[in-house]
Amino acid sequence: MLNSAIHIVAVTQARTPSSDGYAYHRRKMAEGKTSREAMHCLKRQVAKRLWRTMRDDQLARLAMQSADAA
């Protein structure tokens, strides 16, 4: 399910000219990658950003719990 959600985000970004994902996808294609390869790269970038957001949220929750316990 998460892979499907990441795919939807990447496709939406690749098709929206005002998004960072659109520029990233175009840049990868200009480097000589096929559209499919560029989409794979974009999906990887979306997943990395999602992971960082989830990790930072978890760290903030742990810090909040530590502050409440003290």
Rank of each mutant, 00 (worst) to 15 (best):
S18P: 06
R44S: 10
L50S: 02
S66W: 13
P17Y: 01
A67G: 03
T53Y: 11
A10K: 00
D56I: 07
Q65S: 09
Q58F: 09
D56F: 07
D68L: 15
A10R: 01
L62M: 11
R52T: 12
V11T: 14
V9H: 02
A10M: 03
R61T: 03
M54N: 08
Q58G: 07
A5T: 10
Q58Y: 10
G32Y: 00
P17M: 02
Q45S: 08
W51M: 14
R27F: 02
R36D: 14
M29K: 05
L62F: 05
R55I: 12
A10L: 01
A69F: 02
K48S: 13
Q45Y: 06
A5D: 09
H40E: 13
V11F: 09
Y22S: 03
S66H: 15
K33F: 13
M1T: 13
Y24L: 12
K33L: 13
R52N: 12
V11N: 06
T53K: 12
R26D: 11
A67P: 02
W51P: 09
R55G: 00
A63R: 07
S35N: 11
A5S: 11
Q65N: 05
A23W: 05
K28H: 05
A38I: 02
L42W: 01
S4Y: 12
I8A: 15
L62C: 04
T53V: 15
R61G: 03
R15M: 09
C41E: 10
W51R: 15
Y22P: 01
L2R: 07
L59P: 00
A5E: 11
M1F: 14
R27L: 04
L42R: 01
W51G: 08
T34K: 00
T16A: 08
D20Q: 13
S19Q: 04
